[in-house]
Write a protein that binds this DNA or RNA. Structure first.
Lengths: 195, 195
DNA sequence: ACCAGTATAGGCAGTCACTGCCAAATGGCA
DNA sequence: TGCCATTTGGCAGTGACTGCCTATACTGGT
């Protein structure tokens, strides 16, 4: 959006702050680290940390890549098969991640599932974003769309939890894809065709 | 579980505290009411409020009916068609609610969706309970079960949100049932058969 | 009814997340 | 370089939440 010098400095500071925060949280635990310590480690004032992130949990949750744009969303998911579009968007999104990005995400996910307070904030964040997507896409059948996006967020959360619990051994897109397929086809057939 | 005098007094106090809290939150707003005010209105000490409820959000979320018992759950949902069992349990649960219970639930739901902080705590609570259920039921196909319960919580949340947004005009079981049916049969067919 | 022993409530003091408010500094621009 | 808009930092305050200790109320046996 904005590419002025101020904005770039702000983003750099946010990355520095987040990095310092993750280091400290991993070392000493989320509850044991005060914002003041994070601010000191990142060489900014505590007040600035709050201005940038708004809450302690956001230090872990924040991701600079997920700014969304309702117009583009409607173009992307407004077609005949929005689930296929969603799957494709997810595949592209995961494929675009470099090794560094993935490493950072793993650190964040680990912390998110270690501390329920962070998880709660994360879930709410996910729901708010998906409701925005649903509002941009959904027309008549609002109820179905709402149920789907909430269920999808739940599914992604379950997939992420599984990914983390299994030591990040499975490629993450594969898990999300399996979850999405379950939502797509329903949960009935599962019992009829055991492995 | 325990039916001693202490336990009954504690439950009575919890109901009194929750009732006072809902009154105050509705009148003045969740953020504007301090725990101290709730404690004063319910004639207990603030320390006791924390001991009973653990957090301010729990004053709204808490429901005395949802104590769960892993053994019974396994017996109930361990059969061939756990989704049908779940639907039947939901139907029975909603049918068992009296007019008073329903009124209380409406007040709580209204507050939950008015204040994101409460919603976040509620969602997390729902996930934790459903993971407990899933652990009690699920065997081999843990991933599918986990995805289902998370999606189901999301679906119920969407249904509750819809219920609240529509002024509680639809019977709640009907909405939950529709959400469950969507999960059961999948979201593909929706686009193929417009209303 | 009484008297241990035990569980529970209340009070106190402290920590820390988070928020306005105002002054200082810093980038944007003529 | 000098002016203006935005941003940062410090300060003080509020309130959620937590140990710790004492007082009180319940419980089970006599």
């Amino acid at each position: 959006m904005d590419h002025g010098l101020q904005h770039r400095k702000k983003l750099a500071a946010m990355h520095r702050i987040q990095s310092a925060a993750l280091d400290l949280f991993e070392e000493q635990g989320f509850d044991e680290v005060a914002i003041e310590a994070v601010a000191a480690a990142a060489e900014v004032s505590p007040r600035t940390v709050y201005r940038y992130f708004g809450s302690k949990e956001m230090l872990v949750i924040w991701d600079d890549e997920d700014e969304l744009d309702p117009g583009a969303l409607n173009a992307e998911f407004g077609g005949d098969d929005p689930i296929a579009a969603l799957r494709e968007a997810l595949r592209a999104g995961f494929a675009a991640l470099g090794e560094d990005d993935l490493l950072l995400i793993r650190r964040r996910v680990t912390l998110i599932y270690r501390y329920p307070a962070i998880e709660a904030a994360m879930i709410l964040h996910g729901y708010e974003k998906s409701r925005a997507i649903a509002a941009a896409v959904g027309g008549e059948d609002a109820f179905e769309v709402q149920v789907f996006v909430h269920a999808f967020v739940g599914g992604v959360l379950a997939a992420m939890r599984d990914w983390c619990a299994a030591g990040f051994s499975t490629p993450p897109f594969e898990l999300v894809d399996r979850a999405l397929t379950l939502l797509e086809h329903g949960f009935t057939r599962k019992r009829a065709t055991p492995s």
